[in-house]
Design a protein around this nucleic acid. Structure first.
Lengths: 150, 150
DNA sequence: CTGCTTCTGTTTCAAAACAAACTTTACGAA
DNA sequence: TTCGTAAAGTTTGTTTTGAAACAGAAGCAG
């Protein structure tokens, strides 16, 4: 019997789009700004969650904590983030140079998003964002699923 | 001046969802079927594009050709795919065992998709698929973009 | 304070990914 | 056929990843 293939399988599309997105972003950001895609993501997470900790950022971005640790060291060495260690817990924030780089990167990132969503009306964009949020909310239940041994 | 963060940035959501998807899928498929996520993707691409070549599959999945090459060797060693080398060019297809494994994996994959889309009406699913297809079509233009040196 | 537990971040090490070099096969022209 | 060129696939060497081990500090009980 013939297996049935589906070309509208949602996870495959998501993986394809996401890979193309970070592949292209990596190359562009590295070439133009000397920053890897992980550093860019961490930078942007700090802006969205100012004063937060490294583990919070990893959780937010779905990145491994060793990746976050390494990215933070890089960003700190380039004096783009400050580690506000008044106590033991670390509160992260951007330096002036960090904000400047972030703004430059953000401009390019928004342009790329605009190209990705070319032809989408404002209503469609809002709908898409809603769908993405709902899928995101469904992830824990999905990953909790495990069929019995086959 | 303060940088502005956006929590509805589409690429970030896509990356987050896609990572969670393949992370969970990897663990589950490896544990239950002894197959890595790449092997599963290649298997499923062969079903969708029967008789195609390794490079065509890599292109379709957005995977590096060395990854495809290794996955194909693995699948071939386990006698899940046949390399129909009548001529030089390789036409790939699944063995009976390959189809059987594919069907089992597909059942789990569809269940996971169902959980991901829990709460989506049929209309919403169709809309989502349309949006994904349109984003996918926009990718070449997006990755062609390159701002002048800053 | 001392010892115990918990939480955060770092490092290590093995596995995986990527790019580039290399090999092989096909195709076209002379 | 025999070159020369192009395309497909494999291998190699380096970089990156991620899970687990580790180290350091904070909070808490006694």
């Amino acid at each position: 019997m013939r297996s049935v293939g589906r070309d509208d399988y949602v996870p495959a599309y998501l993986s394809l789009i996401s890979n193309a997105l970070s592949w292209g972003g990596s190359r562009l950001f590295l070439r133009r700004f000397g920053v890897g895609i992980n550093e860019w993501r961490v930078l942007s997470a700090i802006v969205n969650l100012p004063g937060s900790t490294a583990s919070r950022i990893g959780e937010e971005l779905g990145l491994n904590k060793s990746v976050v640790s390494r990215s933070l060291h890089l960003l700190h060495n380039r004096e783009l983030v400050t580690v506000d260690a008044t106590d033991g817990r670390r509160a992260l924030s951007l330096t002036a140079a960090g904000h400047e780089l972030h703004d430059q990167l953000m401009a390019v990132a928004l342009k790329r998003e605009e190209l990705l969503l070319a032809g989408f009306s404002p209503q469609e964009r809002a709908q898409l964002q809603g769908y993405l949020r709902r899928m995101h909310d469904n992830i824990p239940a999905m990953n909790a699923y495990d069929p019995g041994d086959p």
